[in-house]
């Protein structure tokens, strides 16, 4: 196990390095910070001066090496646009994204798994057919359109939930969070539901198909023959066996929500990191984008690692050399 961890650590460092090169090159290809930042009343000389100050007048390789040496010193750089340290920018926006992502994933699991197991066990019932139809409709509607429909329904017509922004926050260990007071929580609901709908549908389908397959495995028949009660069969045999794909997907989905809830955060003006990423890409704010994506890469590497370990625990046939 230890050598496995060490090996993964080594791979991850290489991965992060490759990521930083890709993003550096990517942002260079996409945009020029001077072109975005310079006002219309900048003369050619003003533009050159701005490029010098941002450090983007040098060749790309030099810029990258400067960036690496700064990282080594623990300096992740300063945003071109906001002129503030990028870590500050990212960290102050992270809690907002985290709480919505966790809420959405929880909704997905809490509603999705029971519905999925129910559908898998009761294939011919009316409720199953309705669930199946609803999940299909659920993930057929583009996320951004769904968001607009939610705003139209809940904020404009029914006027029960606010359409945008974060609302009041409560400090929890010095971190502002929304879910601890009603105003904040009500602001969280629409974005979370918007993110959750797709997750609910997906979890339902995954656990349904898992259930269907597991139900006809010999050990289930055997367990039934042995007279083990239904609830116990579901808990001990079924759940354990369908958890494998669910764990993989949930891990990755949570990562995805944290990293790229860009559309939802944009439509609901939710001040999270997804919106920061989109804005930064559009404003040619390379330091933010690079630092952000390095952080995201680290996160995914960790999630994948945890998922792999869980695999080993859940499925004893997989062992690591």
């Amino acid at each position: 196990m230890l050598s496995f961890i060490l090996r993964r650590l080594g791979q991850s460092s290489v991965l992060v390095l490759i990521m930083s090169v890709l993003v550096f090159a990517g942002m260079y290809v996409v945009s020029d910070p001077v072109a975005v930042l310079a006002g219309d009343d900048f003369t050619e000389e003003d533009r050159q001066a701005l490029a010098r100050e941002l450090g983007v007048d040098k060749p790309l390789i030099t810029q990258y090496l400067v960036f690496l040496s700064n990282i080594a010193k623990g300096d992740f750089g300063v945003s071109f646009v906001y002129n503030r340290p990028v870590l500050d920018l990212i960290l102050e926006r992270l809690p907002a994204t985290l709480e919505v992502a966790v809420l959405a994933i929880s909704m997905g699991l809490i509603l999705g798994i029971p519905m999925g197991i129910y559908s898998g066990l009761n294939r011919e019932k009316k409720a199953t057919k309705s669930i199946s139809f609803l999940t299909t409709v659920g993930y057929s509607i583009p996320n951004f359109w769904q968001a607009l429909l939610l705003i139209l329904l809940c904020s404009v017509w029914l006027k029960i939930l606010p359409a945008s922004g974060r609302g009041d926050t409560t400090d929890l260990f010095g971190i502002p969070v929304s879910f601890l007071n009603w105003d904040g929580f009500s602001h969280m609901l629409l974005p979370a539901v918007n993110l959750a709908i797709y997750k609910i549908c997906m979890q339902t389908r995954l656990s349904r198909s898992g259930t269907q397959e597991v139900m006809y495995q010999d050990y289930m028949t055997f367990a039934r023959a042995k007279g083990i009660s239904k609830m116990r069969r579901i808990r001990r045999h079924l759940l354990r066996n369908i958890l494998l794909p669910i764990v993989t997907i949930t891990g990755l989905e949570l990562g995805g929500l944290i990293a790229f809830s860009t559309v939802t955060e944009t439509v609901f003006s939710w001040p999270g990191i997804g919106k920061l990423l989109l804005d930064s890409i559009h404003h040619a704010d390379r330091p933010v984008v690079v630092a952000y994506l390095i952080g995201i890469t680290l996160m995914f590497v960790t999630i994948n690692f945890v998922v792999d370990v869980l695999y080993a625990l859940l499925d004893p046939r997989i062992r690591y050399k």
Binding site: L148, I151, S164, F268
Partner: peptide, 18 residues
Amino acid sequence: IRSISNAGARLAGLLAGD
């Protein structure tokens, strides 16, 4: 003063009395 970049959300905020 608040900043809402999405036009639909901005209008919804107006209609909702925010």
